[in-house]
Design a protein around this nucleic acid. Structure first.
Lengths: 244, 244
DNA sequence: CGTACGTTTGATCTTTCTCAATAATGGTGG
DNA sequence: CCACCATTATTGAGAAAGATCAAACGTACG
């Protein structure tokens, strides 16, 4: 079976309704598929982007660099995510995107996407909503890194990934193969790898998580959620459902 | 002279072209003007928004709260900024917006804005670009709070506000009345008020800034920029100009 | 002119970082 | 299948940045 953009369309539809004609137009977009090794660049900071990438399989992350060489991971991506929608209309990339694991991406020309957005109001709006949700996640990360201690930060990141994977239908229960090294976890939480190691062991000692290799399980999801100060509102998963 | 939305339109036009007809449509939007005291809520976390606000004068900030009551300021706004474009399509606000100073805002109904965005492609796109730039600023803040030390964080925030005010034509030279208390600076940088005080004095001792009351001047802009690791690319001010 | 708020300063404490060594893991070529 | 090497994870000891606590000082405003 050849790869399609369906996985991204499903995700867009969670938050923005898309009719049959628009669905078809999206799926008809021409794209090239590429398989990338771990740590491959999808886009570099400073580049003028000509394509947008959809992550079909594997994991990726976004990153910025500080003057002293320090790296900050500013977001992680799971299959189905559109990786650089911001480059649809911004002419210079302000951050880099790299694969976390081996991954396959669909590359769509920026011009084609712009044309589609111009002709389909529903698609334009779905892109807009997707960008707004991205934005909301960034806001939560500012809070995470700015006002939470190490234990909360790490727990929060684990919760976010778990919840997003679950919403995308990529995990059966609460537990998954964490695609990040402790160094990457450190860069995502504003901590050091050494402290990540200690923090994970502490969470394990508290029985809030259990690990074997990189596989993480959540024997006490509710306890972890509380420890993480995790409130999934910022993920805007209930966008289409009426709320209380 | 009665207030108009022109100030917001000017700002949108910096990054996205808008023709005469679309300009007129935007300026014809019905709105109510309200004057707000310092610390007034414009929107509360958890609210279902029915209006979007344009900041006509004064300053505002966005904020999220942590479980322990800690507050994180996730962005500041200057006159001309559209304050809650994210609420145009998201049905529950994931963060609060409050005034920093006494301010006037124009309140536009969400439905009217949505209608305008549906009928005017240029406006829709301008909103999109505005949201993308907001997003870029959030990313830089994650880096600021996650990977920079106190001196860099404070210097960076001062630079950002200076540069944005200048781009909006609101300051003649590099120097302005800082509309934030040290406690608010602390909440914006993930530090404590005490440490903000010490950091500002240190920057002053280094002759990178000078202060009288809340007025800040930059006798050595280039030095400050370097100390802050401030690279204005993330503000995407050159969006319409061709770049190297 | 007094009261509330914001700022400054000092002393001490805590979290996290840094440095360094060791251990486990995973992948590779023989 | 095994030995080797590079990467990743763990642990301990000491250092440092920033937090906390507490008091004093300014300033603005009713």
């Amino acid at each position: 079976m050849s790869p399609t953009l369906e996985i991204a369309l499903e995700k867009l539809q969670i938050r923005s309704p898309i009719g049959d004609a628009d669905r078809a137009a999206f799926l008809a977009l021409p794209f090239r598929v590429r398989t990338l090794e771990p740590s491959s660049y999808i886009i570099r900071e400073g580049d003028a982007p000509t394509q947008c990438a959809v992550l079909l399989s594997g994991f990726a992350y976004r990153q910025k660099l500080a003057a002293d060489g320090g790296r900050q991971i500013i977001g992680v991506h799971i299959p189905g995510d559109i990786l650089d929608l911001q480059n649809l209309y911004l002419s210079v990339s302000d951050h880099g995107v790299q694969t976390l694991t081996r991954a396959t991406v669909a590359l769509i020309s920026r011009a084609d996407l712009q044309t589609l957005a111009r002709t389909s109001l529903a698609i334009q709006q779905a892109f807009f909503v997707d960008a707004l949700v991205d934005s909301s996640i960034f806001r939560e990360w500012i809070l995470n890194v700015g006002r939470r201690d190490a234990r909360e930060r790490v727990a929060h990141l684990l919760c976010e990934i778990a919840r997003r994977l679950e919403a995308a239908g990529l995990t059966a229960e609460y537990g998954y193969e964490l695609p990040m090294t402790q160094e990457q976890l450190a860069d995502a939480t504003g901590l050091t790898p050494v402290h990540i190691s200690r923090t994970l062991r502490a969470l394990e000692a508290e029985k809030l998580i259990s690990r074997s290799k990189r596989h993480i399980r959540f024997p006490d999801w509710d306890g972890l959620r509380k420890a993480a100060d995790f409130n999934e509102r910022y993920l805007h998963l209930d966008q289409l459902r009426p709320h209380l």
